[in-house]
Design a protein around this nucleic acid. Structure first.
Lengths: 386, 386
DNA sequence: TTGTAAGCGTTATCAC
DNA sequence: GTGATAACGCTTACAA
């Protein structure tokens, strides 16, 4: 049964205890201790996937020939090529992208990290990006940070480990440290930031003109006779919050309205905070007659609060949101909102990353693409007869 | 500086024009012309990623020792381990998951294919699945088929090429051929179907009790006095459509109401079709007094049609949807709907796939997990005073 | 405890 | 046109 690994004798073998759970043997003849290599204890063998070598063996050619045939390389005779392609189908060959990526040092995959998945905004961007990328033969590896800095760092680590060729990212609202993104650039992997960008880093960005969108929204409220306009703002560290706040402020200033600090409250984009701060605003001694919210979910929360308090919208309270989520059209008489070109945003980011991937120098000039917004006017902000 | 490639002398070198843009040199001593091999002319050299070998060289140990240290292998001295871990950090080492996957023949990644991204349903499922998987150290590769059979086949091919360890899938409504899924099982890659499953294949499924959800929805309409209840159904080939239709039919039968063929119309789940068929239903000579729609988007389309026609909801028309999209809560006086446990569905599918991956035999018994639905009653179906 | 070397599935650079 | 053979970065017997 058991033969000595050294002298091949069988008759002189005796058991000699265990090593790490494996039977140890002693050959009395040559005084040699050994254990059996575990390969000889055939466990459940993985099903074998057909490889390029299987095809080569099948046809008696070399694997390089097979590789060439499979890739439409010019220097190959039509006959062998035909035979190889047929064998590939017959053996149900599926190329191993992992091996390919390893040798080419590129994965044909770009990663995208978004803070959340539950509003329409990010899924729409993803769909836009995916269209462009898949047309270019790239895959998209989608990750969500769940608005958590730690998860985001984990996401970047995973994408880095998977050697994505590029990264498209919108930051979590907790993110104040950018080393994990810089790690990509340090390795020559291009990064395109969109929507939630920051000022500190990032040479390639895709954003909307938040300032102008906010400005027009507030201007529209003023034109509809609202005079005491509050702003439910986003987190201070996000550029989108800052820009929307700036639009709000400057619109008030342009029309000679006072900018009252007590009417701007910074939330965190969630409805939970919106409920608290919205209630606070509406219960002020001298409450606002309109609220410009940093996004649609919070604007909708304001509408619900108003309804609960018996405030008539738009007569007693005007409300404007930002993004044009699909709910905006349907709630009440409609929510006026600043529409963002979500799909286009994804497409633009994808095109930019493809461009950066193809130029392997990063000599490509820094670039921030600014997309335009559109004010969608609905029932929540239009007072008749003024 | 420059030494002769032949005689290694340095002092006898002189420049001698250019060859293909590269400086050409002449060694006066041995009369030899040469150019520098391009490796020495560092062009845009791919940035080198630190590997295990770099660490090994740095410390003068072997790569296997490094590998062991990095994986907390027991048989390693604390000192070398410490040194290696420090060097890894200092050299900013990032493991190459591709190489790892190649040698282990598993990617620690599971794929998920969903038909679309734009309703809340699938993103919610994905979030649920991702939570479970990432806690287990797996990544999720998300693909969307865009309700197209061809795209779906492309998705499966990509996931197969990337050697995912498992697949979670909800089919496009065009899918009638299942070879591309069977390819996974043939290779020993487990597949879990959810939501859009089919009867023909699939031993592991996660679904909700569509039949019961639909039955209760229709029962609720009957209890509210509706008698001529139509059904805006889904595509015939989907099991969810069939089951919801069965629930509708049997509820009517239970309460002795006739099942009228002209009141069941099969759509394709899109609002476009819902608009056409909805209008058709509402313009019948003898129109229905309630409509049970196969999903929320189509139910909402019905609400909008009713509003446009001046039909009062729920007095003149009752409406019930399916899924509890976030809009359902907000539209009009609320849309009554059958809530699905989306997040749980994702979790369940993920747990099942993990179980299947860990048993590398597929001895695991076939299993269909049926989750329960909940009827959420809102304004679109409750007539007061009956 | 550590090193050596084979191998995972490809592509690419040479020869022939 | 085709075949060896060396990478790619890593894990893992097995040897030392």
């Amino acid at each position: 049964m058991i033969e000595c690994s050294k002298c091949q004798r069988v008759e002189s073998i005796m058991k000699a205890g265990f090593v790490r759970g494996k039977q140890r043997y002693l050959c009395k003849d040559c005084n040699y201790f050994f254990t059996l290599p575990s390969a000889q204890v055939p466990t459940k063998r993985k099903r074998h996937q057909t490889t390029i070598i299987d095809i080569a063996r099948e046809l008696g050619v070399s694997n390089s020939t097979v590789s060439r045939a499979l890739h439409g390389h010019p220097d190959i005779s039509p006959d062998t090529k035909k035979a190889i392609l047929e064998a590939a189908i017959q053996l149900d060959y599926q190329p191993n992208q992992l091996a390919y990526s390893l040798v080419k040092s590129r994965s044909n995959t770009v990663g995208i990290i978004v803070p959340e998945f539950l509003t329409q905004f990010f899924p729409n961007v993803i769909v836009g990006a995916q269209g462009v990328l898949s047309r270019a033969g790239y895959h998209l590896m989608i990750m969500q940070s769940d608005e958590s800095y730690e998860t985001e760092v984990g996401n970047t680590r995973a994408l880095l480990a998977n050697r994505v060729d590029g990264l498209i990212v919108s930051m979590s609202h907790e993110t104040n440290n950018y080393e994990h993104f810089q790690a990509f650039e340090k390795r020559g992997v291009p990064v395109v930031y969109f929507n939630r960008v920051c000022r500190e880093i990032g040479t390639y960005k895709v954003v909307v003109n938040d300032y102008q969108g906010a400005f027009r929204a507030v201007e529209h409220l003023i034109a509809n006779g609202y005079r005491r306009i509050a702003h439910l703002a986003g987190p201070r560290n996000l550029v989108i919050s800052q820009e929307r706040l700036r639009g709000y402020t400057e619109a008030l200033q342009k029309y000679g309205l006072p900018v009252l600090p007590e009417l701007t409250i910074h939330g965190d984009l969630t409805v939970e905070k919106a409920r608290i701060y919205g209630r606070y605003l509406l219960e002020l001694d001298h409450p606002p007659d309109a609220i410009f919210a940093v996004n649609d979910p919070t604007a909708i929360e304001i509408l619900l609060l108003a309804r609960a308090k018996g405030l008539r919208v738009p007569e007693q309270l005007g409300v404007v949101g930002f993004s044009d989520d699909s709910i905006a059209m349907h709630i009440g008489n409609g929510l006026t909102t600043v529409k963002q070109p979500t799909n286009l945003m994804g497409q633009t980011a994808a095109e930019l990353i493809l461009k950066l991937i193809s130029e392997d120098e990063d000599t490509y000039p820094a670039e921030t693409q600014v997309l335009e917004t559109e004010l969608i006017i609905r029932g929540s902000s239009v007072r008749g007869g003024r």
